[in-house]
């Protein structure tokens, strides 16, 4: 039994749009303007064990990417702590902090937006290992070639620019760059969303191969439930900044507990021999600026009752390894 590699403990992230000068002046004059506060991530607990793939699903605006960026160290949490191998990342200093930062890497959704268009790919991939002294100056060429080969790219392409590659190849470059600093933990934020189905399958296979080869742990963020079900050992479902359900993938997909998860799973398009009639969850995702009271899902939930409007349901263990945040579990 290994301990968690990443432990997310009560992490929240608030984004505040502060007032500009004109708005402050307007407020002094009695206008009704106020600061916008978005609770993008709201008190999330999640621990990820060595070697597993943790899937994180949810619709746009649910905070899944923000959580991924907090884990990767790109945002500082507003509250709570992220622990890497038991040590609070925020409290580390000097060499330890650098070490922890290198060990957690991120692969972004849009490879074109995350690769510098003016750099050749040997520079894109080689820069970090050179700066961090992972490869000696003379060996950097060989190091980059090995990195390219590992993700299935021809090392002869190392002098090209990002625009000379196809979407699938760019995704591979993004992965090679993340792997170049020998991470132990990868945050994959919608890393296959922009790819065609046949290319997506290649990249998913690559992720799985790398995981075995390099003993990696993934936080795999996606809105595509099919992809997450395929790749994840465990899965967490987010809705408006909160984790509403969490558990072993097989269990969650076989018998979802939270009404939101149930609705989400009912709507995955699947191959079916006959026509499907789409059942529908009503309404839209509420604005995170002004989320509903109590359980955020209650306006769309078919089972909502008075308590759901008043009180936030805690994320409780409803079965071994299985957590859900729903008042219905107490009602019975």
């Amino acid at each position: 039994m290994t301990g968690p590699i990443i432990d997310i403990d009560g992490v929240s992230k608030r984004f505040v749009k502060s007032l500009d000068m004109a708005e402050r002046a307007a407020r002094l004059l009695g206008a009704n303007v106020r600061e916008f506060v978005v609770n993008a991530v709201d008190d999330v607990h999640l621990s990820i064990r060595q070697g597993e793939v943790m899937g994180l699903v949810g619709e746009s605006g649910c905070g899944k990417s923000t959580l991924g960026r907090i884990v990767a160290g790109l945002y500082a949490p507003s509250a709570g702590t992220v622990r890497f191998r038991g040590r609070d990342v925020a409290a580390l200093e000097g060499e330890d902090a650098r070490e922890a930062a290198l060990k957690v890497q991120m692969v972004f959704q849009d490879p074109m937006a995350s690769l510098n268009p003016r750099l050749r790919i040997d520079e894109i991939i080689g820069e970090a290992p050179r700066v961090h002294g992972l490869a000696a100056r003379g060996e950097i060429g060989a190091y980059v070639e090995a990195a390219l080969q590992r993700v299935g790219l021809d090392p002869a392409m190392r002098k090209r620019y990002p625009h000379q590659f196809s979407g699938g190849q760019r995704a591979r470059i993004g992965i090679a760059r993340a792997l170049a600093v020998k991470p132990e933990f990868m945050v994959c934020d919608e890393s296959v969303a922009a790819l065609d189905v046949s290319i997506q399958a290649q990249i998913l296979n690559l992720f799985m191969d790398l995981r075995e080869e390099l003993n990696l742990t993934y936080l795999f963020i996606s809105h595509d439930l099919g992809v997450v079900e395929h790749i994840s050992d465990r899965v967490a479902v987010m809705y408006l900044g909160r984790v509403v359900e969490q558990g072993v993938s097989e269990d969650v997909f076989a018998s979802p507990n939270h009404p939101y998860t149930q609705a989400l799973l009912a709507e995955i398009p699947t191959f079916e021999a006959k026509k499907k009639s789409y059942s529908v969850i009503k309404g839209e995702i509420p604005s995170p600026i002004d989320p509903p009271s109590g359980c955020h899902f209650h306006p769309r939930c078919p089972h909502a009752f008075a308590l759901c409007r008043a009180e936030r349901p805690p994320l409780k263990e409803i079965a071994p390894q299985r957590y859900s945040a729903c008042h219905l579990n107490d009602a019975t």
Binding site: L225, E267, S279, V280
Partner: peptide, 9 residues
């Protein structure tokens, strides 16, 4: 999103 896609379909 998936839930909205299902509504449109």
């Amino acid at each position: 999103d998936v839930t909205i896609q299902a509504q449109i379909l």
